[in-house]
Design a protein around this nucleic acid. Sequence first.
DNA 1: TCAAAATGCAACTAGGAGGTTGCACATGAA
DNA 2: TTCATGTGCAACCTCCTAGTTGCATTTTGA
Lengths: 103, 103
Amino acid sequence: MMATAEIFRALGDPIRLEMVQRLTKGGRCTITVLSEGLGVSRQGARKHLQVLADASLIALRPQGRDVLVSLDPEALLQARRFIAELERRWDARLEALKRLVEE
Amino acid sequence: MMATAEIFRALGDPIRLEMVQRLTKGGRCTITVLSEGLGVSRQGARKHLQVLADASLIALRPQGRDVLVSLDPEALLQARRFIAELERRWDARLEALKRLVEE
DNA sequence: TCAAAATGCAACTAGGAGGTTGCACATGAA
DNA sequence: TTCATGTGCAACCTCCTAGTTGCATTTTGA
């Protein structure tokens, strides 16, 4: 799948969105901590984390008994840029239409 | 589902992403035109359009025999703002960490 | 008027997503 | 050592998604 679509897809779930939000607030933490209070089992949460990792939104780094989860802001940046580019093209189109009408 | 997650989810598919891109380039057009060259049937494409419409990314406006598809940039704006806010919080966290180290 | 075009609706299918549970395994702490 | 903790792996289930096809309906244009 197109990399950008995969990023959006990964963000397109309330649980995963919550996980990303927690990471922007609290920085890195373990899988277990990040999985608490989401309404799903640890294994369920783990699958969501894998989706985020596959989309490069997070990094999973084993450290001893734990696995540290950390945000990778690069994917967020890519998503934001993509949307900004869409908006830019849309605005340009509207401008062109406006000029056409005024002539 | 959280509205923002629904927007991301709608964008999280290569076909739907392509549709949105076409709309930012070409402005409004009919369902049939927008469904061409995507590798799926018209009905398949129609379902994708419904997903985009449910997320308020596009508007479907019947006009005579046709249905005009038009982009709703408000949902794009919402998505972009959401990501920007995540980035802002992430940066703030890094800054706080940095200050902590320097003290 | 009549045919073609654009669309809607419904039924059906295959596959993947999201969820669970159970168990094994490595690691850290008492 | 011993036991609790944090993870991983695998099997399984259910439901939604993405896709199809067939047919009916409305509108346009010749």
